[in-house]
Computed example of a mutant assay.
Amino acid sequence: MIRHLVLFKLDEGVRRDDPRVVEGVAAFRALGDLIPDLRFWECDWNITDRPIAYDFAINSAVDDADALQRYLEHPAHQAGVALWREFATWVIADYPF
């Protein structure tokens, strides 16, 4: 199994209630039901308010590297990423577990 973690930081001045953000969150929340390769899926807002904290997180798992690639290329994932590109930056980590 591979764990896929993503941490998102909203761009300066962008708020959680921005309509673009609301749409992006909805798109990512739906992925767990749309992409068969996902074995585990959760995402939500960070509840801490510290200067080094990121704003939103995805924690997911897939069976192997091929499944991870299919997830990354899935049209629903690509559509969500396109939304988030407009208002955030992110970092990722993929590791076996």
Score class of each variant (00 low, 15 high):
9 K>I: 03
11 D>K: 00
85 R>C: 04
32 G>P: 07
41 W>Q: 00
1 M>I: 08
84 W>F: 04
84 W>S: 07
69 Q>P: 02
75 P>N: 09
32 G>T: 05
78 Q>W: 10
48 T>P: 06
59 N>E: 08
42 E>N: 02
52 I>T: 07
38 L>M: 05
2 I>F: 15
6 V>P: 10
90 W>S: 14
34 L>T: 04
67 A>G: 10
92 I>M: 15
22 V>E: 11
84 W>A: 11
92 I>H: 15
89 T>G: 06
97 F>R: 15
25 V>S: 07
74 H>W: 09
80 G>K: 10
48 T>M: 12
90 W>T: 14
29 R>Q: 15
91 V>Y: 07
3 R>T: 14
28 F>Q: 03
1 M>C: 14
19 P>Q: 09
3 R>K: 13
28 F>P: 03
2 I>P: 13
64 D>G: 07
33 D>C: 12
32 G>K: 01
96 P>Y: 13
44 D>I: 01
35 I>E: 01
80 G>N: 08
20 R>H: 00
39 R>Y: 00
11 D>R: 07
22 V>S: 10
13 G>W: 05
86 E>Y: 13
81 V>P: 10
63 D>Q: 14
35 I>G: 00
36 P>E: 02
13 G>S: 05
76 A>Y: 04
37 D>F: 04
95 Y>I: 11
28 F>S: 06
46 N>D: 10
52 I>P: 12
17 D>L: 10
12 E>W: 04
62 V>Y: 11
43 C>P: 07
6 V>R: 04
